[in-house]
Deep mutational scan, measured.
Amino acid sequence: MSGNGNAAATAEENSPKMRVIRVGTRKSQLARIQTDSVVATLKASYPGLQFEIIAMSTTGDKILDTALSKIGEKSLFTKELEHALEKNEVDLVVHSLKDLPTVLPPGFTIGAICKRENPHDAVVFHPKFVGKTLETLPEKSVVGTSSLRRAAQLQRKFPHLEFRSIRGNLNTRLRKLDEQQEFSAIILATAGLQRMGWHNRVGQILHPEECMYAVGQGALGVEVRAKDQDILDLVGVLHDPETLLRCIAERAFLRHLEGGCSVPVAVHTAMKDGQLYLTGGVWSLDGSDSIQETMQATIHVPAQHEDGPEDDPQLVGITARNIPRGPQLAAQNLGISLANLLLSKGAKNILDVARQLNDAH
């Protein structure tokens, strides 16, 4: 009898209710805020589980004197976190989706994509230029951005401005803007500013005609071990179906173009009346040469937790077992079709030249 009692006690200790789920994140304040929001949602869904947040620095956090596009290494903000995932030191990792490459290392998958916040870019102005827009900034004003995508589009749109690289986390960039006289304004992701509670610093939100956004911008991705079915089931509740389908289309477009950090590629997606609209573009580094096109596809946005595919093969690095396969494939095909259209119009040449120029500098 006593033996059975011990077995029952052991089973209770090993039951999922007692389990601590370890969540990996970057150390920056924004990353911690984003991770806290994901953990809060998981806690609400699984009140019996405990969650421990483990923060670590990544290569991208450490190399702050070089433009991201020049470092010449993929997975700048993800490699150390993936290493911890691989060694079973954490069970899942919360990322900004735009930091996750469209091809993940073997053994990993994006197990959830959370509801997207505003994906557009924002302009934050130096205190002396508050009330201005990019259009009304004085001639030769210097605007800071760490992104080739932003610089290429904005140089084309605002030729009277000069664009220079600015690195560091959000706090560091804002301090550089406010305390030094080098920059009249800087460009940042609206979602990051909003998550930090800095709505009052948003001086201008850039519309798609001015600057399309990065693939996955404004959404959070939760990376897990691809074979860890328990954790895949656990994080599945975080999937937002519309965000998922938009981001599958965007990531398929980028992957098929073979774009990345070192080339200016941008997108804009919208879901309306059962249609998914995808606009994508590529630019030369100075913005003088560009190709942009829009395509659409009829896609039914499923309700969360309709029964999805059981075999769960990944699409552009994403596993969404609780979302039907048909809409996911339709979104992926839309991204591939748009990429093929741009490639047929000469996108590869623009991107190759951009890559060579970026590598040469």
Rank of each mutant, 00 (worst) to 15 (best):
V124Y: 01
A320N: 00
I248T: 05
A152M: 09
L161H: 11
F125M: 11
H95K: 04
G111I: 01
L341M: 11
I110Q: 00
E310G: 12
P47K: 15
S337V: 15
L174D: 02
G287L: 06
N200M: 10
C261Q: 03
A266G: 05
V353K: 00
T294I: 13
D233G: 07
L244A: 03
R22P: 05
G216Y: 05
I350Q: 05
L244S: 14
S69G: 09
K62G: 15
F253W: 04
K79I: 09
F51N: 05
D91V: 04
G346V: 07
R325Q: 14
E210I: 15
E306P: 07
T243Q: 15
A122S: 10
D311S: 05
N322P: 08
P302N: 00
D99I: 00
A44C: 06
G236R: 13
A249T: 14
H268T: 00
I291K: 13
D240L: 02
Q275E: 07
I21T: 08
A151C: 11
S75M: 06
W198G: 08
L278V: 06
F158E: 03
S288M: 15
D61S: 00
A191F: 03
H199D: 15
T133Q: 06
S28M: 00
T279E: 07
E139Q: 15
L278A: 05
G218M: 00
K87Q: 14
G144M: 12
A297I: 00
Q314G: 01
D352Q: 11
Q229V: 06
L177G: 01
R246A: 14
V94D: 03
R26C: 00
E306M: 04
I336W: 14
G144K: 08
G274I: 01
R325D: 12
E135C: 09
E306F: 15
I53S: 08
V142S: 10
S147A: 00
A214C: 09
F108C: 09
F108P: 13
I350C: 06
Q304R: 13
N333D: 00
L285W: 07
P106N: 13
Q275I: 06
E139W: 14
R251F: 02
H83M: 12
H95P: 01
D307F: 15
V215Y: 00
V222D: 02
A331D: 07
S290K: 07
V215R: 04
P241M: 15
A249W: 02
A84V: 07
K87N: 14
H300C: 13
G326R: 11
Y213S: 04
D65N: 05
K227P: 01
L177C: 06
G107F: 13
Q296I: 06
H256N: 06
Q194C: 04
S28H: 00
P159M: 08
L334W: 08
P264E: 05
I231P: 01
A354G: 15
K227N: 05
I187A: 08
N88T: 13
P159S: 08
L154E: 03
E242V: 14
D233A: 07
H199M: 13
I21S: 00
T35Q: 02
G326A: 15
I205G: 13
R167V: 08
G287S: 08
L64P: 12
A214R: 00
L154M: 09
F51G: 08
A112I: 01
V20L: 08
P101A: 13
K348R: 15
H199T: 06
T133N: 13
C261R: 02
R173N: 03
V282F: 09
V20E: 06
S69R: 11
E139S: 09
A252V: 15
G144T: 09
S337T: 14
F108T: 14
A152V: 13
V123I: 13
T59G: 07
Q275S: 01
A55E: 15
G216L: 02
E250S: 02
H126K: 12
V235P: 01
I33S: 11
D230Y: 06
G131V: 12
K157G: 12
L148C: 09
D312N: 15
G274S: 01
L42Y: 04
W198Q: 06
T136Y: 11
M196C: 14
Y46L: 08
G281N: 00
D312L: 05
F51S: 06
L49H: 11
K157E: 06
N322T: 08
R26M: 00
S288K: 07
R201L: 14
E139C: 14
E250V: 01
H83Q: 14
V124W: 05
A152T: 13
H305S: 06
D36C: 06
N322W: 14
L68M: 13
E209F: 15
G203H: 00
K87Y: 15
V124C: 09
H120S: 12
L134E: 04
D286Y: 09
K272Q: 09
V143W: 03
A44I: 09
D230E: 14
H83W: 13
G287I: 05
A354L: 03
T269I: 00
Q155K: 13
Q181H: 09
G168D: 01
Q229P: 07
M295C: 03
A191R: 01
V93I: 14
T319I: 09
T319E: 04
K43S: 10
L220T: 11
A40G: 12
V142C: 13
K345N: 11
K128I: 12
D289C: 04
M271D: 15
T78K: 13
A189W: 00
A112F: 00
A44P: 07
K79L: 09
K87C: 11
C261W: 07
E52K: 07
I63F: 13
L49F: 06
Q153Y: 12
L285P: 14
E310R: 13
Y46W: 13
P101H: 13
E89M: 08
K70W: 09
K43A: 09
P313I: 15
R246S: 12
R156Y: 06
G236F: 02
D352V: 08
C114E: 02
S96H: 04
K272Y: 02
G317C: 14
V93Y: 03
K345V: 05
L161V: 07
C261A: 01
P327Q: 14
V130N: 12
A40Y: 14
A347F: 03
R355S: 15
A151F: 09
L276K: 01
L244P: 04
L148M: 14
M295R: 13
V235F: 01
L64K: 13
Q204M: 00
A44E: 12
D289A: 13
D312Y: 12
R156N: 12
I187W: 03
K27H: 10
Q292N: 11
